[in-house]
Design a protein around this nucleic acid. Structure first.
Lengths: 246, 246
DNA sequence: CGCTCTGTTGAGATTGCTCAAACCTAGTGG
DNA sequence: CCACTAGGTTTGAGCAATCTCAACAGAGCG
């Protein structure tokens, strides 16, 4: 079902040397500051590759391994006993997975890969110790959860108080924004691996309704989709619909 | 509009001495552990009383004052430009207000009193310093945001993936649970100061619909409401509807 | 007594859902 | 290279949950 897990990264994977990792400046542990930044390698357990639908973190369990998503997309979610699913947020390259493991608490949600992913894995305990020893890093943990609160409140406003069209437009705009900030956008083409059912489960809608709504946006000429990516044709219109921010 | 703010607590207010505060063991800064627990008083700026609808924290601003809610209820919310409101969660006695101020970050939401409240106020900077100096307290901050994530994900599941009845029942059960844990429940009577519009704004519904749904529960004999409080008449039935947990 | 806030209720409109079938596309195995 | 499959998208028809608008009633307050 899921692509076999390879133990070592090859072509285009993360470097052995965290200090020169292209993602280093975005990562939770931040840019290599002091000379002793190689503490990271000492703690890093391995790079790995997984296919779609691989579960990296299980809700309720204390993550023993934590990860930086090096390439590919993932998402955080909860599954109800009857199969209903709520997606909390999507993870892009550079995002950290399993931060609860750093402070020894059970994960608030499961995390699953949305595409093929390359991960940099660390032992949760050990990395947690590294974080505790450094003031800057300690603060990063706070900020991580703070940021998480911030995206959750945003999503809650969407789901609780905005129409389907508003929600979808805002999700699209948000993803464009985040993809841009990671340098994933070239030539106006924004990577967009989400299936309509992911959008539905993130926004509290039905995939059927998502389909109709998106097609309306498409027919209106505001946006174009192609094989895992999208192009925003009329940003003004979209911002108008989404209410810019607030 | 809002009751005048008194500078000093009188009858039944918090003691001068944080060490013997009845709420001490629930509070964010935890029970008085070591002998030097009086650091708190040194940092505490004042007790105060506010009427309904007093804004304690403004979204987007870094809280300069932080509080422990000593008595009364409050809620965290966001207001859209067009007046739509999303409530994120309700605050009970013992809850901390403005934790973002401890780490010098802007508040993710506004906080407003739902009833008359008594607050223990602290200077955010100073209390933040106290927290940083102590390992246990440092961890409390993490846990605070972690908990916040946990309630937000819970609410998001409700709003995104459950029916109106399910949501309302779960909110009621959750509030009973929390009120109980703070010793606010006596004689099966659970304090319930929320107006139907608060329920609506927390659960992504209309107050009209909340009204009809609640009345159905009432007519079914599952629950009773009276002047700011409620009694659960048939817990089994409610748990059945709410899906216990998960 | 006259407000204001909240809760109630009715009637009708809508958004978004359910069910179901058809269709596409990429991947798989022969 | 083709048939087949699995996962996703699209579309239609009908329905249900929830909303909107509006009016009224009851409680508490100055």
């Amino acid at each position: 079902m899921t692509e076999a897990t390879l133990r070592c990264c090859q072509n285009g994977g993360p470097p052995e040397d965290c200090m020169h990792c292209p993602l280093r400046s975005i990562a939770l542990y931040g840019p290599a500051v002091d000379g002793k930044s190689d503490t990271l390698e000492r703690v890093r357990s391995s790079g790995m590759v997984h296919g779609t639908r691989h579960i990296m973190v299980r809700e309720g369990e204390i993550p023993r391994q934590v990860f930086t998503l090096f390439s590919g997309w993932a998402f955080q979610f909860h599954l109800l006993p009857d199969g209903r699913r709520q997606i909390f947020s999507f993870l892009l390259p550079g995002d950290f997975i399993g931060a609860e493991g750093l402070i020894n608490l059970p994960a608030n949600y499961s995390v699953q890969s949305l595409t093929r992913v390359q991960l940099c894995g660390f032992d949760a305990q050990e990395l947690g110790r590294v974080f505790q020893e450094n003031v800057e890093l300690r603060e990063r943990i706070n900020e991580h959860f703070y940021d998480e609160v911030s995206v959750l409140t945003g999503r809650l406003i969407d789901v609780g108080r905005r129409t389907a069209t508003e929600r979808i437009v805002r999700l699209i705009l948000e993803i464009e924004q985040r993809a841009k900030s990671r340098g994933l956008v070239s030539d106006q083409t924004i990577p967009f691996p989400l299936r309509q059912t992911h959008i539905a489960d993130a926004l509290g809608l039905t995939s059927v309704h998502v389909n109709r709504t998106i097609n309306a946006l498409r027919r209106a000429g505001h946006i174009t989709f192609r094989r895992g990516s999208m192009v925003i044709e009329n940003r003004m219109a979209l911002q108008e619909i989404g209410g810019s921010s607030a």
